[in-house]
Design a protein around this nucleic acid. Structure first.
Length: 757
DNA sequence: TGCCCGGGTGTTTTT
DNA sequence: CACCCGGGCA
């Protein structure tokens, strides 16, 4: 078998170990994916039916990629039958089949984070709790981590440790919110991301017959990125593998970067407790990067205390030193990086796609976008607001969701009055109250006006009736038409398409195009059905809830510089990698500085970043950057100092604006370490304070000068003329005519009006 | 009921 | 700076 010949010894051993529990510790760039794909191919060559293989990956993209590669070895037909995907997508599929056993209807909806947070917000409001204390994000994370540790709402409210913890944080009602949240999700026939795993656990725990079925089905289980699995995922795998114990987990403890969302590095460290006779394989030869990059990465990670012993090495050439750029400002950082990319393209005939700019937070992308655009270098940003989170897309998807599952409350609330059909907040509030009083879903209340009379006017009543009838008429076709046909029908008859079509602004146009793109996607989904299979809308909804932007690569995006967070870059590689924003409080993040454990995760993140590079790695930081409209001073990240100096090339970019800066070596390296913990937020606080003062109501000198007939200017409306003044100070209201925007009424104490002579 | 203004608030990372 | 939310007004 040819594909086995290209493997090195340790890879070969792992690939040929077909049975029993095994763990592969795979250093960065050591050919992990290759081992996984070859091992699966090898299983199939050894007469294992692809139907009996379950391969769990971290992203959909990884699954797709791996399937493709396996297909190249053993043929697409065989590869197609492997159960391969993310934990979420695989178990959503299984739940779709089996969920009636745990009381859920088959058409359940998957709530994304937005839906969940919106529901939490309503609950907090209904409970009359302080929404500053119970912010949706905080509550969501708390519930999420409970679920990832398989703590149910009931268990949560009974757990004395948790109760004490929540009390201490002044949030004693979290348990009640969690209870209500679960109740509401269930009433809406919805599961959130964490439920998909939680409920799978429930299913496998309480239904021995189901467990046995899947234990027999999945005779061979592989888990990629095992270091990033959480307890809930760990237990699913353990349960499924219990019968045959043909379990292969692959991971790298040095690349564990998702502890913040419940990933448990102990899963790797504890593997030998569950499977004492497991076989351990270590892949330590790096094929990806130059010696310098590998050695520099090793010197970084050696600062961590908790790690599995391994020596990553490479036979590749030495390569260039890692260039470190210092920039005066974040904008200058953008310019330096873009120039350097341009430079390397010229010098080494590299393409756009050979380059990646990696940052800690999505917000950092802007300066790089601007600079790349100025140099005419094509780029693509991953992350940020994903396609599926755009308002217009969520709106249309909500129509689909509501059609498939009438009880989906978040979807219902989103679209019942969009486009406008005269069903306002008041009517909906009445219905919501009735829903919670009667323990019914919102839809049920609206659908049975006879049973649950609402104190709303007749106009609204008949509008609601029309809306209900419309959704029902859509639903009648759910299993008659394929996904595309019904999707198209709904899009045109719900009024959304028309609404967007009539909006001729540039944003409106792009929204319309996005809808078209979504429909194209559904068309493709429908057309991809195999022979004698029809793909319905509900099938699409299952898929779409778990898709992310990275799964959406378009051909025209092929030759572009990649901009993404380091998290998103996990598993990818590029010839040239720029790691930017290496500053204290940014990377490592300010929020990670409290504990060693969190700081070590940041360090692993840096390790992941640098090991993405094949040929050259670059590091940059700025001495000052904008944060919330204020300039703050920054210090170079401690991570730069942790790299052995012999791997670095310090490069100071001359810039007219930054002439007076201290010599680089003095300002960043050999810094007095005691100073490092100081934060430098003095300036922004002062400037913020000053800004506030100058905006004090009534403090404006201009106020006295403003008289009827005066020419004034406004930041947004431009120049205008005061037509009328009324009221007495400080509540003087001015009617101003702006030639550009028309007549406006402004309260002088708020509006920033300047008198122009 | 809906729009518009201005104030308040916030940035980790994501399936 | 940029978004979201609430209040006030049409």
């Amino acid at each position: 078998m040819d594909y086995l010949k290209s493997l090195n010894n340790s890879q070969n051993e792992a690939v040929n170990n077909l049975e029993g529990p095994m763990m592969v510790i795979a250093g960065a760039g050591s050919g992990k994916t290759r081992v996984l794909t070859c091992r699966i191919a090898n299983l199939i060559q050894n007469n294992v039916d692809p139907f009996h293989i379950l391969a769990l990956t971290f992203t959909n993209k990884a699954a797709k990629e791996m399937k493709k590669r396996i297909g190249e070895i053993i043929g697409d037909q065989e590869a197609r039958n492997i159960w391969m995907g993310t934990f979420h997508s695989i178990f959503a599929r299984i739940l779709r089949k089996e969920c009636e056993k745990i009381g859920y209807p088959k058409n359940f909806t998957i709530y994304d984070t937005q839906d969940s947070k919106s529901l939490i917000k309503t609950i907090v409001k209904e409970f009359h709790l302080d929404d500053k204390l119970y912010k949706p994000g905080i509550v969501y994370n708390r519930i999420s981590s409970a679920k990832n540790n398989l703590i149910s709402a009931t268990a949560y409210t009974k757990n004395t440790d948790i109760i004490a913890d929540d009390r201490m944080n002044n949030r004693p009602k979290l348990g009640e919110i969690y209870m209500e949240y679960q109740k509401r999700c269930f009433k809406s026939h919805a599961m959130d991301f964490d439920d998909l795993l939680f409920k799978t656990n429930v299913l496998l725990k309480d239904h021995a017959d189901v467990l046995h079925r899947y234990q027999h089905k999945f005779k061979y289980i592989l888990v990629d990125e095992y270091q990033d699995t959480n307890y809930s995922q760990y237990l699913i795998v353990k349960r499924l593998a219990a019968l045959n114990e043909n379990l292969c987990v692959v991971g790298d403890d040095a690349q564990s970067i998702y502890a913040f969302r419940g990933a448990n590095i102990q899963n790797i460290l504890n593997f030998k407790k569950d499977y004492p006779d497991f076989k351990l394989f270590k892949l330590e030869q790096n094929y990806r990067s130059t010696k310098i990059i590998v050695d520099a990465a090793n010197s970084i990670i050696s600062n961590n205390t908790e790690q599995i012993e391994k020596k990553v090495w490479t036979a590749n050439s030495e390569g260039d030193k890692i260039k470190v750029f210092k920039a005066a400002t974040d904008n200058e950082e953008g310019k330096i990086v873009a120039n350097s990319i341009f430079d390397n393209q010229q010098r080494e005939h590299a393409k756009n796609l050979d380059f990646a700019i990696l940052y800690r937070t999505n917000a950092q992308s802007r300066s790089f976008e601007e600079s790349l655009r100025k140099l005419n270098i094509a780029y693509k940003i991953y992350g940020g607001l994903s396609f599926y989170q755009r308002k217009e897309i969520k709106d249309l998807l909500s129509y689909y969701r509501l059609t498939a599952n009438h009880n989906d409350e978040e979807a219902l609330k989103r679209v019942i009055n969009y486009p406008k059909r005269g069903i306002g907040k008041t009517s909906l509030d009445h219905a919501m109250v009735a829903a919670s009083e009667n323990g019914k879903s919102l839809w049920h209340i609206l659908d049975n006006p006879g049973k649950y009379p609402l104190a709303i006017n007749n106009g609204a009543k008949s509008k609601i009736k029309d809306f209900i009838a419309m959704i029902k008429s859509f639903a009648a076709n759910l299993e008659k038409l394929n996904a595309y046909d019904i999707a198209h029908q709904i899009a045109s008859s719900c009024g959304l398409l028309k609404e967007l079509y009539n909006d001729k602004s540039p944003e409106g146009l792009s929204r319309y195009e996005n809808i078209q793109e979504l429909l194209n996607g559904i068309k493709e989904f429908s057309d991809n059905a195999s022979d004698n299979e029809v793909r319905f809308l509900s099938d699409f909804l299952l898929d779409v809830a778990l898709l992310t932007d990275a799964d959406n690569d378009k051909p025209e995006d092929q030759d572009k510089v990649t901009l993404m967070t380091i998290h998103a870059a996990k598993g990818l590689e590029f010839p040239y990698v720029y790691i930017v924003g290496l500053e204290e409080n940014l990377f490592p993040s300010q929020l990670s500085l409290n504990t060693r454990v969190e700081l070590e995760e940041e360090r692993r993140l840096f390790y992941v970043a640098i090991t993405r590079a094949e040929k050259k790695a670059f590091i940059s930081f700025a001495s000052s950057r904008y944060k919330w409209g204020n300039v703050i001073q920054c210090e170079p990240s401690r991570f730069i100092e942790e790299i052995d100096e012999k791997y670095l090339e310090l490069s100071e970019q001359k810039s007219k604006a930054a002439g007076q800066d201290l010599p680089f070596a003095n300002s960043s390296r050999f810094l007095d370490k005691s100073k490092k913990t100081q934060t430098t937020v003095q300036k922004p606080i002062i400037s913020n304070h000053l800004k506030k003062v100058s905006n004090q109501p009534g403090a404006s000198v201009n106020m006295e000068k403003i008289a009827e007939g005066a020419n004034v200017s406004h930041a947004r409306f431009g120049k205008g003329k005061v037509i009328k003044l009324e009221g007495s100070p400080p509540n003087v209201k001015a009617t101003v005519f702006f030639p550009n925007v028309g007549q406006k009424q402004l309260l002088l104490k708020f509006a920033k009006l300047d008198v122009i002579d």
